[in-house]
Design a protein around this nucleic acid. Structure first.
Length: 476
RNA sequence: UCCUCAGUAGCUCAGCCGGUUAGAGCACAUGACUGUUAAUCAUGGGGUCGCAGGUUCGAGCCCUGCCUGAGGAGCCA
């Protein structure tokens, strides 16, 4: 007889049928009730042990974390708090778990502590909820794009280009760091390195996605990206996953429509498929926020916030309009902004938060930023001052998506690259897309962990990826 | 990288103006109880006060440096 997943057992009508289950003990109460979890659901199965019929030696080995297999009769629970329970007839201990050494206790642990034991934290309801939602969202992303005619492209993890200039790079090398080969002029001789030139981990799959979009019309990438920036914030990781769709024949409004529709689909998917997990996470978040001062709490509970984002259309405005709003805000007149508002500057976190949380109180799409603060590949507007960029700002998270319509005109692109000192020679393959059958096209990048943060309500990004990589932290 | 705060038992924390043998709850062990829901009750064990210096008759507490963590900022997704 094979063990049945707890998820499936809880769907059976209990009528004293014999079932077998395996899992890990969460708590053992009253020398009589085992709360068993196997990860198939965040719900636990209550096992009732008649302590008079089992040897004391066996029962003494049952602690939080012990793995067991139980065979018994499935009956309606006599107690409150659960619908089903299994009256144990046979109980085998698979793996013991010393209660003196096992760090997880049947009590609340701080997220900081659990982060230090990331190899064990998945055994908590919080992290099971988060990672189930994460898994579901990853699946939903593929489902969404596959249903909409997109081709999944695997962009390379190791690249030799730093075209985007998006942050510091992780260098990839097989050179002996204790004996680095040098050229006659004393520089590192990369001709001896594995690729014969400097290589690094990718910071974005966008440029490769653009190449593919010129063949398949609609493509997306979904893979890990790496930034060696020394950023220590609850919103940044050195290794994170990014979704980057790229669409030929799409202009900026089409790009915005797609991004908004996709985000709503993903949130709706989580809503439909993980009600128990989201319910639990909402509970967790509201308890966490009881510790915070009133003005730092979320304006609405998690499920309400998600529902709100699905129903409301995102506010769309240009960078210039946003600056106008900020300049004329009472906030600005009372000089509450630390950074003065001025056309041409990059919006600071406080400005973005004002727009999203005070002015509109819903997701905001900002477009047409000054070209000086955006990447070389963004399509230039006729005003010669702005580019067809778009950023989607979410409450609590900030920028969740950054995208643009790409510059498809070869001369304009080359001119911009010259201005920004980007080598046209190294980027010949990218420029070829504009030489051979160029078309208007657009795309964006979605930070997967930031999406998971938003949907789960977790305040620190290190708690939505199983093994976070951050400066000075590469454990497990 | 910058600013702020924190580091005391396995966990969460208290520790007064620098003064005797550093405390609590939970966890753990032992016993009692046995339809519990982080069970309950009683008893007990458990400390390199982050690390290294310094000031002082005396430092968990004051000073300096470093390490680690958190929050904010910058960079961004």
């Amino acid at each position: 007889m094979k063990p049945i997943l707890i998820k499936n057992i809880l769907q059976l009508t209990p009528q004293s049928q014999t079932v077998k289950v395996s899992g890990w003990v969460r708590t053992f109460r009253n020398n009589q009730f085992i709360s068993l979890n196997d990860g198939s659901t965040i719900k636990n199965l209550q096992i009732v042990v008649d302590f008079q019929n089992f040897p004391e030696e066996l029962l003494k080995k049952i602690h939080t974390g012990t793995s067991i297999t139980v065979t018994g009769k499935l009956v309606p629970s006599l107690g409150k708090g659960q619908t089903h329970e299994v009256v144990a007839e046979a109980l085998d201990i698979i793996g013991e778990c010393s209660p003196e050494e096992y760090p997880l206790q049947p009590k609340k642990h701080s997220l900081e502590f659990l982060r230090e034991i990331a190899h064990l934290r998945m055994r908590t309801t919080t992290f099971q909820s988060v990672f189930k939602v994460r898994s579901g969202l990853a699946f939903a992303i593929h489902q969404y794009f596959q249903q909409h005619g997109f081709v999944y492209i695997h962009s390379p993890i190791i690249t030799a280009s730093d075209a985007e200039g998006a942050g510091e790079l992780f260098q990839v090398t097989t050179l002996n760091l204790n004996n680095i080969p040098k050229t006659e002029t004393g520089e590192v001789d990369f001709s001896e390195d594995f690729f014969g030139k400097p290589a690094n981990l990718t910071v974005s799959g966008q440029l490769e996605a653009e190449l593919a979009a010129m063949a398949f019309s609609k493509v997306y990438t979904f893979g890990p990206t790496f930034r060696a920036e020394n950023s220590n914030t609850p919103r940044h990781l050195a290794e994170f996953w990014m979704i980057e769709p790229e669409m030929a024949f799409y202009e900026l409004p089409d790009n915005m429509d797609l991004a908004e529709d996709m985000l709503k689909y993903l949130i709706q998917y989580a809503f439909n498929n993980f009600p128990d997990e989201l319910e639990f996470l909402q509970q967790r978040q509201s308890e966490e926020e009881k510790q915070k001062p009133q003005n730092e709490r979320s304006s609405m509970p998690l499920l309400e916030k998600l529902n709100f984002c699905i129903k409301e259309s995102f506010e769309r405005l240009t960078y210039t309009q946003a600056i106008d709003i900020l300049e004329n805000s009472s906030y600005n007149k009372k000089k509450k902004f630390q950074f003065p508002v001025q056309w041409g500057m990059d919006l600071q976190t406080e400005h973005e938060r004002y727009l999203v949380e005070k002015e509109f109180n819903k997701p905001v799409i900002l477009t047409d930023y000054p070209k000086a603060i955006k990447a070389f590949y963004m399509r230039q507007n006729d005003d010669d001052k702005t580019v067809r960029a778009m950023d989607i700002l979410f409450p609590g998270i900030g920028e969740i998506i950054g995208g643009s319509q790409r510059e498809e005109r070869l001369d304009k692109l080359e001119q911009r690259m010259k201005e920004m000192r980007i080598s046209a020679k190294d980027m010949y393959w990218y420029l070829d897309t504009r030489r051979f059958g160029t078309v208007p096209h657009s795309g964006f990048g979605l930070g997967f962990e930031r999406l998971v943060q938003f949907v789960t309500g977790m305040s620190n990004i290190r708690d939505v990826i199983p093994f976070p990589r951050t400066p000075k932290n590469c454990e497990f």
